[in-house]
Amino acid sequence: MASVWSLVVCGLMMASLPAARGTAEVMSHVTAHFGKTLEECREESGLSGEIMEEFHHFWREDFEVVHRELGCAIICMSNKFQLMQDDARMHHENMHDYIKSFPKGDLLSETMVRLIHNCEKKYDDIDDECSRVVKTAACFKKDAQAEGIAPELTMIEAVLEKY
């Protein structure tokens, strides 16, 4: 890679740091609020206590989003907020509105919907909804971390009591 190009990329990354921090903070609100429905969906999705406990650490680097039951839980949780269509794919308008309902949610809405949609397209050929959703979630987590919008656990813990 040319050194001029490296400087341009580095400059753009530095310029976006405050925005990335802001969107990670918004993501902490979305995560905390969304996560409040997990207990309601535990039995319906067949989530074991062990997997459920791990799910609380979704954004941790070492947490692997692989269990089909997590996909079922995400579907159930999403349905509580009308974030999915009947085919267990994201409802774009409702997702935008949901994210925008949080403080500074407009900073995150477009990016989050774009990332989820791109991940959904990658796994569109999987018929089993729970399996497709868990793969989409794993893809989204990876892409959100790459974009710098994944929240730190301390951020999520700081806003949990609000929800």
Rank of each mutant, 00 (worst) to 15 (best):
H96Q: 10
G71V: 05
H67Q: 03
L115E: 08
H67W: 00
N79D: 13
Q82G: 15
V113T: 04
D87T: 02
I74E: 05
H92V: 15
R89N: 07
F102K: 11
L108E: 09
D86F: 03
V65F: 01
F81L: 02
S101V: 15
K100W: 03
V113M: 08
M112P: 00
L115H: 15
V113C: 06
K80Y: 03
P103R: 06
S78Y: 00
H96R: 14
E69C: 00
I116K: 02
I116V: 09
I116G: 04
F102R: 13
S78I: 07
R89W: 09
G71A: 03
M112C: 10
E93A: 12
L107W: 14
L83E: 06
N79I: 00
K121R: 15
K80H: 10
S101A: 13
R68P: 03
I116A: 15
F102H: 11
I99E: 07
I75T: 01
M112K: 10
K100I: 01
E69M: 02
D86N: 12
I74G: 14
A88Y: 03
C119L: 04
R89E: 14
S78T: 04
L70N: 04
L108A: 09
I99V: 11
H91A: 04
H91P: 09
E69Y: 01
I75R: 05
S109T: 11
M84F: 00
E93T: 12
P103A: 11
H92D: 12
I99M: 07
H117V: 07
K100E: 07
A88T: 03
I75K: 08
Q82V: 11
V66G: 12
V113A: 09
T111N: 10
L107D: 04
H117C: 12
K121M: 12
I116S: 08
D97R: 14
Q82C: 10
L108Y: 06
R89P: 12
A73H: 06
T111Y: 08
E120I: 08
H96N: 11
G71C: 00
H92G: 08
V66K: 12
L108Q: 14
E110D: 15
V65M: 03
T111F: 06
K104C: 05
N94K: 12
C119Q: 11
D106Y: 09
A73M: 08
R68L: 01
C72L: 01
C76K: 08
M77D: 00
I116R: 05
E120M: 10
G105M: 09
C72N: 00
P103E: 14
Y98A: 13
D87I: 04
D87V: 04
H117L: 13
M90Y: 05
K100L: 11
D106H: 05
L108M: 13
E120T: 11
M112G: 13
K100N: 13
